[in-house]
Computed example of a mutant assay.
Amino acid sequence: MDKNLIQRVGSGLIYGLLTFLCTTEYGAILINKISPDLVKPHQLFYGLITFFLVVGAYEGVRIMKFQGNLYQWLVLPLVALVYYKFTTRFFGFGFYYTFDLSEILALSLILIAAITLFKFPQELYQDEGKLIFIVIYTVLPFGFALGLPKYFLNDNAFTWEVFLLFVLIWSSDSFAYFTGRMFGKHKMAPKISPKKTWEGFAGGVFFTLILGYFIEQKFPDLRGNWIVVGLLVSIFAPLGDLVESQLKRTFGVKDSGNIIPGHGGVLDRLDSFIIAAPVVYLYFILENIF
């Protein structure tokens, strides 16, 4: 077997296992068997998301190649400050966020950042634009991801919204790839991602909807309807991949990093999650209102 394939499969399995342990209660169960009451499920989850954020922000700085040191060194303090606002809500009020003006603004900023990247990339050639883009592109999606699962403090029950969101994203990516390989003829975005086809996109939507149906039947305690979540993921996960591809193309970078051997960096691995997570968060909030 090819050495690179072995490396890619091995690192992918480790990444998947780590994600599973930190986005479900099983990581805390495993650790607490060694040292009782050492951690709670939401602490591992918070640690994982924070790790993704810190590495992702670093990779963003690497990709965008700041011209001077001032704005480059401002990235981490600004990222920390904005993420702190999410952190206080996460630990202070649990996982049930409210839909208010600040959240509407924050969700809108993600859309504006994506539009700017595709339509007005010249705005990101200045260090000020790079700083703002990195904060929006990393902090806001990972911050909203903290609000996806339900956590019950009294019995440490931790629902699986985030892990199953990852499962749907992996499903969408995999089925889109295989369907595209077999039937793909019409390019979706040839200048940005030449291998993506509309046939592959359709295959990703179809099979992810089926998986969403089974999740809905198997996990009735999850927030929202997971057929709807499957549809949202199958639409917005490919868009997330295109956003990161456009970002790397704009600044002439092949991979965001090499922290995951054979897969690239955190932004390479989580590009779909970065766009899908805020969209699913918005759906959960609207579904709760209506």
Rank of each mutant, 00 (worst) to 15 (best):
residue 1 M to T: 07
residue 2 D to L: 06
residue 3 K to V: 10
residue 4 N to G: 09
residue 8 R to T: 02
residue 10 G to I: 01
residue 12 G to V: 03
residue 17 L to T: 12
residue 18 L to C: 02
residue 18 L to T: 00
residue 20 F to P: 03
residue 20 F to G: 00
residue 26 Y to L: 05
residue 28 A to H: 02
residue 28 A to T: 02
residue 29 I to L: 10
residue 29 I to A: 09
residue 30 L to N: 00
residue 30 L to S: 01
residue 33 K to A: 11
residue 33 K to S: 12
residue 38 L to H: 05
residue 39 V to K: 03
residue 39 V to Y: 01
residue 45 F to D: 02
residue 45 F to C: 01
residue 49 I to Q: 12
residue 57 A to R: 09
residue 65 K to W: 11
residue 72 Q to Y: 06
residue 74 L to V: 08
residue 75 V to D: 14
residue 76 L to G: 11
residue 81 L to V: 10
residue 81 L to K: 07
residue 82 V to Q: 02
residue 83 Y to T: 07
residue 84 Y to W: 14
residue 88 T to Q: 15
residue 92 G to P: 06
residue 94 G to N: 04
residue 97 Y to G: 14
residue 98 T to H: 10
residue 100 D to Y: 11
residue 106 A to W: 09
residue 107 L to W: 12
residue 107 L to T: 05
residue 108 S to I: 09
residue 108 S to D: 09
residue 109 L to C: 09
residue 111 L to I: 13
residue 111 L to N: 12
residue 111 L to Q: 12
residue 113 A to R: 02
residue 114 A to C: 14
residue 115 I to W: 13
residue 116 T to M: 15
residue 121 P to R: 00
residue 124 L to E: 13
residue 126 Q to E: 15
residue 131 L to F: 10
residue 137 Y to E: 11
residue 142 F to K: 10
residue 146 L to C: 06
residue 146 L to I: 02
residue 147 G to W: 10
residue 148 L to V: 01
residue 148 L to D: 04
residue 152 F to N: 12
residue 152 F to W: 11
residue 153 L to A: 11
residue 153 L to C: 06
residue 157 A to R: 07
residue 159 T to E: 04
residue 160 W to D: 12
residue 161 E to V: 03
residue 163 F to V: 08
residue 167 V to F: 09
residue 167 V to C: 05
residue 168 L to M: 14
residue 168 L to Q: 09
residue 168 L to P: 05
residue 174 S to Y: 00
residue 181 R to T: 12
residue 183 F to E: 13
residue 187 K to A: 15
residue 192 I to Y: 00
residue 192 I to G: 03
residue 192 I to A: 01
residue 195 K to S: 15
residue 195 K to G: 15
residue 197 T to L: 06
residue 201 F to S: 15
residue 201 F to H: 09
residue 206 F to E: 11
residue 206 F to D: 13
residue 208 T to I: 02
residue 208 T to E: 05
residue 213 Y to Q: 08
residue 215 I to P: 06
residue 215 I to C: 05
residue 218 K to V: 15
residue 219 F to N: 02
residue 220 P to L: 01
residue 222 L to M: 04
residue 224 G to T: 10
residue 225 N to R: 04
residue 226 W to R: 08
residue 228 V to F: 02
residue 235 I to M: 06
residue 236 F to A: 02
residue 241 D to I: 06
residue 241 D to H: 06
residue 244 E to P: 10
residue 244 E to I: 07
residue 244 E to S: 06
residue 245 S to Y: 04
residue 247 L to Y: 03
residue 247 L to E: 02
residue 248 K to I: 11
residue 249 R to W: 01
residue 251 F to D: 09
residue 252 G to L: 08
residue 260 I to D: 04
residue 260 I to P: 06
residue 261 P to D: 13
residue 261 P to M: 11
residue 264 G to A: 02
residue 264 G to N: 03
residue 267 L to K: 04
residue 268 D to N: 05
residue 268 D to I: 06
residue 269 R to W: 03
residue 272 S to R: 07
residue 273 F to A: 07
residue 275 I to C: 13
residue 276 A to D: 03
residue 276 A to R: 01
residue 283 Y to D: 03
residue 284 F to A: 10
residue 287 E to I: 06
residue 288 N to A: 14
residue 290 F to Y: 10
